[in-house]
Amino acid sequence: MKGLWLGAILVSVFVGAALLSLVWVPYDIIQMNMAQRLQGPSWPHPLGTDHYGRDMLSMIMLGARTSIAVALVAVGIGMGLGVPLGLTAAARRGGWIDEIVMRGNDLIFAFPSLLIAILITAIFGASAVNAIIAIGIFNIPVFARLVRGGALSLWTRDYILAARVAGKGRARISIEHILPNLTNLLIVQGTIQFSLGILAEAGLSYVGLGAQPPVPSWGRMLADTQTMYSIALHLALVPGLSILLTVLGLNLMGDGLRDLLDPRVRRAAR
């Protein structure tokens, strides 16, 4: 329970910062201010300034927006395509659709995700949108497998048999009976995948394949200031800790939600 609360607080701090950045940030980050560069934390700049004299707090707020937007859309793509695929595979267990879906999943799983991301950006150019697509593709098999596994065990239940006796088709049963009973599973996995998405976005930006300047991104903030850590440590600490705390918060939340929503774990946790 404590983990869930701590996670929720951490996540809401960063989500709040991202939302706030939509309407207001302390400084304009397009403006360079060489006179103010590489300053440590102070009242006018609570998190200091970078090598161009830009306010780090504003950069982190805008970076949170990028990270959260990329991860959210990527998880959305993964769920939006993976869940129907998993449901279909389970409904047609052992059939050719099941084979195609599951072997397709294996194919995606077999490729290192960074390799595919490089491939996509090499073909279509580096941008936040392409990072979203790359991360999204890797979320599809995760959700497809999860849903197929959960659905297969539900398909053996008596209430599914009763629905079949009532003449309901596979698609209707999948939507009416299977999917609602998988929501707990999806919420928990969605939270975990969201945190992995943030990590992946940071990783892609770090190697220059994510959001392009001037859109700020936590991964690129780390990469840009790589050579200056020895003279201004906060340049590494601020974006690094932002990534760490967000991911930690989401993972704590995911575990907490699992304990809360899964009756088997809930009993053991007490």
């Binding site: 239940r157 008596d158 209430y159 048999l161 009763a162 006796v165 009532a166 003449g167 009416e176 009976h177 609602p180 009973n181």
Partner: peptide, 21 residues
């Protein structure tokens, strides 16, 4: 469905026979 209409079934397990939601 016109043929299915003639029959219904009651299962053994009173806990697994219903969608809990």
């Amino acid at each position: 469905p016109a043929i299915r209409k003639h029959m219904q079934v009651v299962f053994q397990d009173p806990y697994g026979s219903f969608n809990p939601r």
